[in-house]
Computed example of a mutant assay.
Amino acid sequence: MTRAAIEAYYAAFNAGDASGMLACVSDDIEHRVNEGGIRRGRALFADFCAHMGVSYAEQLRDMVIFVNEDGTRGAAEFVVHGSYLQTDPGLPEAKGQTYILPAGAFFDLRDGKIARVTTFYNLADWLRQVS
């Protein structure tokens, strides 16, 4: 079930289906963002998904998913193929720049839902690619 939840989450991500992503997470989802704060709860996670949908167009490729034996933890490694569409405050101006960025995520799962996702990527590498 752990692998299926993570696969469904990323299938929805690649389809640009924010509601599909939300269906995979718990009401009290904890979203830890690379070099950022922690978003707690489905509403803040939905806001993040909406923002990402207008600022970036991304596809995750070369996905490898790892899970522990009891189904409570998981991880994924992948390569982000993206376009920077709309300027994010505090970041370089968006002009449709493309980027390819290795990334990964760690998950806690509870009752078949993702209760925590922590995402990591090299921000300096991304900045070099879009600057």
Rank of each mutant, 00 (worst) to 15 (best):
R3V: 07
A4S: 12
E7I: 04
Y9D: 00
A11C: 03
A12I: 02
F13H: 11
A18K: 07
L22R: 04
A23N: 05
C24M: 03
D27T: 12
D27E: 15
D27K: 06
D28R: 10
D28C: 06
H31C: 03
E35K: 04
E35V: 02
G36F: 05
R39I: 12
R40A: 13
R40G: 07
R42I: 06
R42Q: 02
A43G: 02
L44G: 10
F45I: 02
D47A: 15
D47R: 13
D47Q: 14
A50Y: 01
S55N: 12
Y56G: 00
E58I: 15
L60G: 05
R61P: 02
R61K: 15
D62S: 15
D62N: 15
I65V: 15
I65P: 03
V67I: 14
N68M: 07
E69H: 12
G74N: 06
A75Y: 05
A76H: 01
V79M: 08
V80L: 13
S83K: 15
Q86D: 08
G90R: 14
P92Y: 11
E93R: 14
A94H: 08
K95F: 09
Q97I: 12
Q97G: 11
I100Q: 13
I100L: 09
P102V: 10
G104P: 03
A105M: 09
F106I: 09
F107L: 06
I114S: 02
I114G: 01
I114Q: 03
F120I: 11
N122K: 13
L123D: 01
A124W: 09
D125S: 14
